[in-house]
Computed example of a mutant assay.
Amino acid sequence: MSAGKKHDALNSLIATVKDESGAYPRNCYQAQKSLKVSPINSAAVKKASKYLTRAKSNKKKVNKEKRVFNAFTKNPEHEARAVIFANLKKGDKCIAKVGKLITQKRKELKKRESTLDGYVVSLKNAAKQCEDARTITKRYAHARDEKFYHDAKGAYNKAQFIERRLRKTIRNDKVYLSNGASAKVKDIDNRLYKTTECLLDVDKRISAMYEKSRAKESDLAASELKEKERVLAEKEKALAAKELALKEKIEADASRGRDYEDEDEGISVFIELNSAYQNELKVERE
């Protein structure tokens, strides 16, 4: 190759290296710019990482061309030398800053996703508890057994506790409040809305079950009272029969000339026996 062609080839290579060195900080600045969105999102971090990879590739291509740097060593005053080294210096400074920034943003994203995922898990649990309560209220809607009422009420209370605690938490949670447009927050809002709807429905159903269980208790109490009255009536009837039998016995004894010392003694015996039976009757009634 002639000296002229070698010179032209070297100049062409220097121009290419100069362009690559200029792309080095430009791509890094694009990476930095991609991270300036608020709130930060995974798409922005991926975009920044992509530009950062390009920037590193630019520097690698520049450093690979040893012929260019050898030429600069021989000719330190070459007009491209200062430009290329200035671009490398700006790129290196940007790379160090953006690399740390991407790491920081990834940590923020991980923490945010962990927080929001925790809310989703809680709402899934609340939804399950509420649906369990709803299933019980549907399946045993006409049952009067208090067990089903308490089972439904227990599941309902658990779901309600989770729902209320979550609402209180997200009211002051910067992660939730600053990511209202994200798909995950929208999913949380949707789950929260459905859980609240479920709770309102189950609350009505549980109230109906409670009324039925109370009606059963009233019916049972009335039945028990009626049975007690029946038993008491039978006992009073039996005591009355005993009392009548006692009177008849005393009268019969008197007509047969029972050996009482006098009429007063017969009367006192009658009173004593009658009083005993009256006390028995009183005890039975009580």
Rank of each mutant, 00 (worst) to 15 (best):
R67M: 03
D92L: 14
V175H: 00
I136C: 04
D219P: 00
I250E: 14
S207R: 11
N87L: 05
E131G: 07
I95E: 11
S12N: 12
D189S: 08
T16N: 07
A155M: 06
Q278P: 00
K59Y: 04
I95D: 06
R106F: 01
Y260Q: 08
C94S: 07
F161V: 07
S57I: 05
S42E: 14
E108V: 13
N27D: 15
C94F: 05
K212Y: 09
L239Q: 01
K36C: 05
K168F: 08
E261M: 14
N58S: 14
H7D: 15
V98L: 11
A215D: 14
K204G: 08
V175M: 06
E234D: 04
L281K: 01
L109Q: 02
E20F: 03
D253G: 13
V185I: 08
A245L: 10
A221H: 02
A222H: 03
E146H: 01
Y277M: 09
R112L: 05
I250H: 10
G118R: 06
S223D: 12
Y156P: 01
M209A: 08
R258W: 07
Q32N: 06
K242V: 00
K216D: 11
E261R: 04
S49Q: 10
A221M: 10
T137I: 11
E20N: 02
Y156M: 07
S255C: 03
L123E: 14
D132V: 09
K107L: 12
E284W: 05
S42D: 10
V283R: 07
I206L: 11
A15K: 12
I206E: 02
K186W: 09
F148I: 14
S268Q: 06
R171K: 14
L246H: 13
M209G: 00
E113M: 10
S178I: 05
A159I: 12
G180V: 06
A48E: 04
I40G: 04
A276H: 07
K216R: 15
Y24C: 01
K147L: 03
